[in-house]
């Protein structure tokens, strides 16, 4: 059992993986994250509040935190944001996504390293911090603090979608036989 687990995680990406292998993996995962971003634009859910969304792409980032190195996850996340931004968004939307993506990456990495949280908890913190990052950028761009009105909605939506994505990530990691 232990052997098969080791084999499996080596199959994913081990410490001594070649550069070619690492690049290939990161490329495939970036593509997967981009597809998730695209799929999300097709979901016609509209809560009437800008910034409320499922966060499917976070499945790749969050699960990556459990079997990749942090720098690789960050590269995948940043590449996904910039590429989907150019494909489906505009300059401003990249700014919002980057703010949310970077803040949630840092928070999730911290909680992952701190230990004690399952992927669900890490993901809740990620979802909430993502929304807070976007709200802060919106306050800067629109130059008003009145947007704080949206804070309660964004906190709740970040927690709910984060929890959903976190539970799903738990399933994914189980299927990949990555220990967490």
């Amino acid at each position: 059992m232990t052997d098969s687990r080791n084999d499996r995680s080596r199959l994913l990406l081990s410490e001594d993986a070649t550069i070619g292998r690492t690049v290939a993996y990161c490329g495939v995962l970036t593509a997967l994250a981009m597809i998730f971003s695209y799929v999300e634009t097709l979901i016609p859910i509209n809560f009437g509040v800008p910034g409320v969304k499922l966060g499917l792409a976070n499945l790749v980032v969050l699960s990556g935190l459990y079997y990749l190195r942090p720098a690789q996850v960050l590269a995948i996340s940043a590449a996904r944001i910039v590429l989907t931004g150019f494909l489906f968004g505009n300059g401003v939307s990249i700014l919002y996504s980057l703010a949310g993506g970077l803040l949630s990456f840092c928070v999730m990495l911290l909680l992952r390293k701190a230990g004690g949280f399952s992927p669900a908890g890490v993901s809740v913190a990620g979802g909430v911090s993502h929304n807070i990052g976007q709200l802060l950028i919106a306050m800067l761009v629109l130059r008003t603090v009145h947007l704080a009105w949206y804070l309660p909605v964004l906190l709740v939506s970040g927690a709910v979608t984060g929890l959903l994505m976190g539970l799903l990530t738990g399933r994914i990691l189980k299927a990949l036989r990555v220990p967490y």
Binding site: G116, F117, S118, A120, G121, V153, L155, A159
Partner: peptide
Amino acid sequence: MNKKDLLLTAAVLVLA
């Protein structure tokens, strides 16, 4: 989903 996860989620909801 463990106790710490639940506490964190509850804390966020209470804050909201």
